[in-house]
Design a protein around this nucleic acid. Structure first.
Lengths: 109, 109
DNA sequence: ATAGAATATTCTTGTCAAAGAATATTCTAT
DNA sequence: ATAGAATATTCTTTGACAAGAATATTCTAT
């Protein structure tokens, strides 16, 4: 169900959150500050990322520290690798395919 | 601008289109049939995928044959690989981290 | 030139999701 | 126990986008 991951990443604040988490974990309020949004929105976005399995929580006192969940990135990597024939093995096949269909075209290619 | 790619893939029909294109190129009407949607929606979805740079058109007579654009998948692959330290180099660090924080989680792990 | 095939565009409607605002919950000090 | 800090939830409003419906455009045969 990789589409849940795409939906989670299709929002600017959440994409930013994920990229910030590449450096280190952050708390909810830290995200609110870094993204210049209010705390409730930060909570909501983190909840969505959490439900998408991209993030997990680490409770320290009242603070909820969020970190990246490698698992979901693994799956995403696998999904993309299922397309890897596009730019690896079949680069020649693609070329021949284009060459083959070129004659069917009106010269705009 | 990888977020445009995520937005494009965050819709079930478009995700399906991309996965169908993994096999071979298709025309607009073929997508409409395969996805059981009407032709205009197929056109619109393909337009969005095209504007996101994930797909390119090959005009054959009146038919518009759509194929995957490897470039965008390359970029997506690069984006994900920028997170690769998550599941490669630091697998041991992650393991000890999880071991340390496991008691704070809700048991779904 | 005309008809038909294939695709694209426009406009409207309905739905879902993000933001705002207020409040609730949870935890920790004292 | 209580106050305050940190986070979560609820409700409403707003905006974006997908679907529907109708029509327009483009191209190809004849």
């Amino acid at each position: 169900m990789v589409i849940k991951t795409f939906k989670a990443l299709a929002e600017p604040n959440r994409l930013r959150i994920v990229e910030l988490l590449k450096e280190k974990p952050y708390s909810v309020n830290e995200f609110a500050e870094l993204l210049d949004i209010r705390q409730p929105q930060a909570s909501k976005h983190l909840k969505i990322l959490n439900e998408a399995g991209m993030v997990f929580v680490n409770t320290v006192a009242q603070r909820h520290i969020y970190s990246l969940n490698p698992e979901s990135f693994c799956q995403l990597d696998e999904w993309i690798n299922s397309f890897s024939t596009l730019w690896n093995n079949r680069l020649d096949n693609l070329d021949t395919h284009l060459r083959k269909t070129r004659k069917d075209q009106d010269g705009t290619y």
